[in-house]
């Protein structure tokens, strides 16, 4: 049985600790209460973006909302059970265009075949596929009872 988090976009509660390593401090509580977290796409909230984590029998998937980022500048790295996603977006300001850096770290609960991680970007959503290592896939073992 897994504990499923549904946080209406905030980094509150245990997930704040688990994803990104930020402690769920009082500021976060206030942000959550007034819905101020993530409202500023351009530079607000330290360039974070919402993510979603799901799995099937073979893979673990991370889906990130990254509308309008430069495809070539999307950087996905996996190391030591942690997935790092970095991207940048051009934002219009009063002085003209400027680059806004976005980044997020996500802890992956399962063992991953690091060399087989793939990513796809479609309609502003980045989907990272992380194949699980053989030994962590569920194995069916027949045990004979005498």
């Amino acid at each position: 049985m897994r504990y499923i988090q549904f946080t209406q976009p905030s980094y509150r509660g245990p997930s704040a600790y688990r994803f990104g390593g930020r402690a769920a401090g009082f500021d976060n509580e206030i942000d959550w209460l007034f819905g101020t977290t993530l409202t500023g796409l351009a530079g607000g909230n330290r360039g974070q973006f919402p993510v979603e984590l799901y799995e099937d029998k073979q893979n673990t998937y991370v889906r990130a909302e990254l509308p309008g980022v430069n495809r070539d500048a999307v950087n996905v790295e996996y190391a030591d059970g942690s997935l790092s996603i970095r991207a940048s977006r051009k934002a219009k300001t009063a002085e003209g265009e400027k680059d806004v850096a976005l980044s997020r770290e996500v802890s992956i609960p399962d063992e991953v075949q690091a060399d087989k991680v793939t990513a796809a970007y479609e309609n502003g959503v980045l989907t990272v596929t992380l194949p699980r290592r053989e030994e962590t896939k569920a194995k069916k073992i027949n045990v004979s009872v005498n």
Binding site: Q5, Q8, E52, L53, Y54, V125
Partner: peptide, 17 residues
């Protein structure tokens, strides 16, 4: 949005609906 989870997958963490 066309972001429904694929068949047979389990949601572990979600921040947007």
């Amino acid at each position: 949005r066309n972001t429904r989870l694929p068949e047979g997958s389990t949601l572990l963490h979600r921040e947007v609906s």
